[in-house]
Design a protein around this nucleic acid. Structure first.
Lengths: 215, 215
DNA sequence: CGCAGTCAAACAATCGTTTGATTGAGTGCA
DNA sequence: TGCACTCAATCAAACGATTGTTTGACTGCG
């Protein structure tokens, strides 16, 4: 039962999407072979052409699936922040900023798709395709905008100014580096993986640094 | 004159190394074909086997070349900091931290190898090979250690504590994100590339945030 | 001659895609 | 109920193109 990827019971289409995400998340489009995907997914090779009209169609569908997935995962928190922002004081904004960062750290370091997502997104940064449009519009921009509105309110400045945009980007970088530079920091700490305590310590450290940066 | 990569005049071996860095810096090992490298380098395909004993040998030699290159580029500043650290006060340490960050930002955003280097390093983070050992030992660790000693002195704490290691990693992340997340921030700013003023603004912003984080 | 270096040509293996056959559940009609 | 037909879905097999590597001949300098 379960298969290697625990996607045995899903439909062929879903199995292909989930398997493709694991593959495209860690290696280039050209490096991932269609045969590898279908073997891991346990489906016939013609299924790619049949369901997605070829490898490229599968890739784009995978990126769209990923973007939608992350968006839905962040939506509750982002919506709550947007609502409370209507009549929130600076203290409350600081508190929400804290919440946002902590959620980001925990999702990024403990979430199941994070490693795959970060890999795929990095590759799209270097060679943007149509997939980058999905990812940017569906969750990068909304997240950056929410972040910017919080910090704009806290610092009494225009949330769409270049300074705020750069600042939010930097703060996100503080967090993302723990996935993108995972091997470096793990080797530096002499560990094989992050413990629950490590993640908590990272979250607190990044939160503290971020709050200092905006105050 | 000069060929596509401006490496016409070098030896076959050097042409292969420089071309391979451009290729391996932006695509996976498997995605880069030997024929593409030799075509861009303007050499015969057998040269890879002859000079590097195959594709893998060329890849490892490329990583070693890159590590050595970055090391030599950073060496003067790191050595100067190490020397002055022997009898430096906190103010001087703050000043040197500022120097280190500014140098990092400018090298990372304006340096010629940076885009290649960041790509190759990211791929090694996800799938570490022998190449990661070169990169880590030759410049990541020395840089992190110097950074940690500065911050340790400033904060009166053990430079080899987990807290300082995490903090330096975060601070580096603030800078690296501008290469790794280049397309995101450029799209957010509505630009095609960073101007000289943008880089200066980023350097100042990151410097300010870093100094706040350690004070 | 001897040898380092370069060259075109060929090798088996793998690439993405296409093909035609087969399966099996659903439908209409007698 | 029983038979014929449709169509989405899956399958093994084969296509030409490209992969990394090897081979043997060729060049030019010492």
């Amino acid at each position: 039962m379960g298969g290697i990827l625990n996607i045995q019971a899903k439909t062929t289409r879903e199995r292909l999407l989930l398997t493709a995400l694991k593959c495209f998340g860690h290696r280039d489009y050209d490096s991932v072979s269609t045969r590898e995907i279908v073997d891991l997914a346990g489906v016939n090779i013609s299924a790619i052409s049949y369901h997605f009209n070829g490898k490229q169609g599968l890739y784009l569908a995978t990126a769209e699936y990923l973007a939608e997935n992350i968006r839905n995962q962040m939506k509750p928190l982002l919506d709550e922040i947007q609502n409370r922002l209507l009549d929130a004081g600076k203290d409350e904004c600081l508190q929400m900023t804290k919440q946002l960062i902590q959620a980001l750290v925990h999702n990024l370091l403990l979430g199941k798709l994070s490693a795959d997502a970060v890999g795929l997104i990095f590759r799209e940064q270097d060679h943007p395709t149509q997939a980058f449009d999905f990812l940017y519009e569906k969750f990068m921009l909304p997240m950056q905008q929410t972040y910017a509105m919080l910090i704009g309110r806290i610092t009494d400045s225009d949330p769409e100014s270049q300074h705020i945009k750069l600042l939010t980007h930097s703060l996100v970088g503080q967090v993302v580096i723990y996935q993108m530079g995972r091997e470096t920091i793990l080797r530096r700490l002499g560990k094989k993986q992050f413990s629950r305590e490590d993640v908590q310590q990272i979250a607190e450290l990044v939160t503290a640094a971020s709050l200092k940066a905006v105050n």
